[in-house]
Amino acid sequence: MRRGTPAPVRQAAQPSPGAPEQNHTGGQRESVSGAGPERLRTEFPFELPRGYVDDSGTVHRHGVMRLATARDELIPLRDDRVRENSAYLSVVLIARVITRIGTVEDVHAGIIEDLFASDLAFLQDFYRRINAEGHTRAAVTCPSCQEHFAVDLAGGRLGES
Score class of each variant (00 low, 15 high):
residue 84 E to L: 10
residue 51 G to S: 11
residue 118 S to N: 09
residue 90 S to E: 07
residue 104 V to P: 00
residue 53 V to I: 14
residue 80 D to N: 11
residue 56 S to Y: 12
residue 111 I to T: 09
residue 86 S to F: 08
residue 100 R to Q: 14
residue 45 P to A: 14
residue 94 I to T: 07
residue 57 G to K: 01
residue 106 D to E: 15
residue 62 H to C: 06
residue 63 G to S: 12
residue 115 L to W: 01
residue 83 R to S: 10
residue 117 A to K: 08
residue 127 Y to I: 00
residue 77 L to T: 11
residue 52 Y to I: 05
residue 128 R to T: 12
residue 143 P to H: 07
residue 92 V to T: 12
residue 96 R to D: 04
residue 86 S to N: 12
residue 32 V to S: 08
residue 85 N to L: 03
residue 111 I to W: 01
residue 87 A to L: 11
residue 48 L to P: 02
residue 140 V to D: 05
residue 39 R to H: 05
residue 66 R to T: 07
residue 88 Y to G: 00
residue 120 L to G: 04
residue 69 T to W: 03
residue 73 E to Y: 01
residue 70 A to R: 12
residue 61 R to H: 00
residue 134 G to F: 03
residue 49 P to F: 09
residue 87 A to G: 08
residue 98 I to T: 12
residue 121 A to R: 09
residue 105 E to P: 00
residue 89 L to M: 10
residue 111 I to S: 01
residue 86 S to P: 05
residue 40 L to S: 11
residue 136 T to N: 11
residue 107 V to H: 00
residue 134 G to H: 09
residue 44 F to Y: 15
residue 79 D to M: 07
residue 137 R to Q: 07
residue 107 V to L: 06
residue 82 V to M: 11
residue 118 S to T: 12
residue 89 L to T: 04
residue 107 V to T: 03
residue 96 R to G: 10
residue 130 I to E: 09
residue 51 G to C: 07
residue 95 A to V: 06
residue 76 P to L: 08
residue 63 G to R: 07
residue 75 I to D: 14
residue 145 C to R: 03
residue 90 S to D: 13
residue 112 I to V: 15
residue 132 A to L: 13
residue 55 D to Q: 15
residue 101 I to P: 01
residue 123 L to W: 05
residue 110 G to K: 06
residue 51 G to Q: 10
residue 51 G to R: 04
residue 128 R to P: 00
residue 135 H to M: 14
residue 140 V to K: 09
residue 97 V to H: 02
residue 98 I to D: 06
residue 136 T to C: 09
residue 85 N to S: 09
residue 60 H to K: 08
residue 107 V to F: 04
residue 136 T to F: 01
residue 49 P to K: 04
residue 143 P to Q: 11
residue 140 V to P: 01
residue 57 G to E: 05
residue 91 V to L: 13
residue 103 T to P: 00
residue 118 S to I: 10
residue 108 H to V: 05
residue 93 L to F: 13
residue 130 I to N: 08
residue 144 S to A: 12
residue 112 I to K: 01
residue 79 D to K: 05
residue 32 V to E: 13
residue 133 E to K: 11
residue 84 E to Y: 03
residue 136 T to V: 06
residue 135 H to V: 12
residue 45 P to H: 13
residue 112 I to Q: 04
residue 86 S to K: 14
residue 114 D to W: 00
residue 47 E to F: 00
residue 135 H to A: 13
residue 34 G to H: 14
residue 146 Q to R: 14
residue 48 L to Q: 08
residue 140 V to W: 05
residue 80 D to V: 08
residue 113 E to D: 15
residue 85 N to A: 10
residue 127 Y to F: 15
residue 127 Y to H: 12
residue 114 D to E: 05
residue 63 G to D: 13
residue 129 R to D: 15
residue 125 D to A: 14
residue 58 T to C: 02
residue 146 Q to P: 00
residue 42 T to E: 15
residue 45 P to Q: 10
residue 139 A to I: 01
residue 99 T to W: 04
residue 91 V to S: 05
residue 133 E to N: 07
residue 104 V to L: 13
residue 34 G to F: 13
residue 145 C to T: 04
residue 98 I to Q: 09
residue 92 V to A: 15
residue 111 I to A: 06
residue 35 A to G: 08
residue 113 E to I: 02
residue 144 S to K: 12
residue 95 A to M: 08
residue 118 S to W: 00
residue 35 A to I: 02
residue 60 H to Y: 08
residue 132 A to Y: 11
residue 59 V to Y: 07
